[in-house]
């Protein structure tokens, strides 16, 4: 068994970030400054904050797609690059070329890449992809073109791709962007279900979504401060986003109803 796939103690944290610095443009544009963060196994945590605050950068550092300039970052007890195959990533679907000729099943199978010695998928890979599609109730769309399905369905396909890899940590980048309220609610239910067996980290601007699902919220704006969701309030959000924030409750009991800051509901 390789180092990256070795079993780890369930009491160890899933992700540990210590005094991490990151800057773009040859260290000229600092995005993250002395960031500390600990995420335990089976945690569900959302990263919220203003645009340019460093949410997606932090997510990409955790995924090993970027390398920190300073500080320590351990994922499942290892450097991120060593455990990439144990991480499931769900990017925003909006970035995909709508004309790209690829079927839903082909997309989900990409979640199995790196697990074959020769580069061709085996029966086990196909079974895992079909199981992930079934888990997302998307098996009937397997042969459809990815471009021909709706935004909410694409989001589910991308989650299926992450699930197909048997990921221990799921990281999602703005999963509720560009999907309707119904898709958002079913995504919320699905993440709750997945969180029973996996750690979940989500980047979002949708604090309403965050407050109704996550255990903790990490406010990211160059630095990171984590809070239990129950402590999240309007003042905190205003300070984070640096201005007036429209608070909208959109849990199932008062969808669309406007609430005043301080009511501990969503943006």
């Amino acid at each position: 068994m390789s180092e990256g796939s070795s079993a780890i103690n369930a009491s160890d944290p899933a992700i540990v970030v210590r005094d991490l610095d990151f800057a773009y443009n040859h260290k000229q544009l600092t995005v993250l400054d002395k960031v500390n963060l600990k995420i335990n196994h089976l945690d569900s945590i959302c990263l919220v904050g203003p645009n340019g605050g460093g949410k997606t950068t932090l997510l990409k550092l955790i995924l090993g797609l970027l390398t920190p300039q300073q500080g320590e970052l351990r994922v499942l007890g290892h450097p991120p690059a060593d455990v990439r195959l144990r991480l499931g990533y769900v990017p925003q679907y909006a970035y995909y070329d709508p004309l790209f000729p690829v079927t839903v099943l082909d997309v989900v199978l990409m979640g199995r890449l790196g697990l074959q010695p020769l580069g061709w998928y085996r029966d086990a890979d196909r079974r895992a992809a079909e199981k992930a599609l079934a888990q997302m109730k998307m098996e009937h769309l397997a042969a459809r073109r990815f471009a021909d399905i709706s935004g909410g369905q694409r989001q589910r396909v991308l989650i299926a791709r992450a699930l197909a890899s048997d990921a221990e940590i799921l990281l999602l980048d703005e999963p509720t962007a560009n999907i309707d309220i119904q898709s958002e609610q079913s995504l919320f239910a699905l993440l709750k279900e997945l969180n029973r067996t996996r750690t979940i980290v989500v980047v979002t601007h949708d604090i309403g979504f965050a407050s109704s699902f996550f255990q903790r919220v990490a406010c990211v704006n160059r630095q990171v401060a984590t809070h239990p969701v129950a402590e999240l309030n309007g003042r905190m959000i205003q300070e984070l986003y640096g201005g007036e924030v429209s608070m909208i409750r959109h849990d199932h009991n008062c969808a669309g109803q406007h609430c005043r800051p301080g009511e501990n509901r969503g943006v």
Partner: peptide
């Protein structure tokens, strides 16, 4: 070709 970033994440 489809998703360069995801391909990198899968070790390619």
């Amino acid at each position: 070709c489809f998703d360069e970033e995801f391909a990198r994440l899968r070790g390619l």
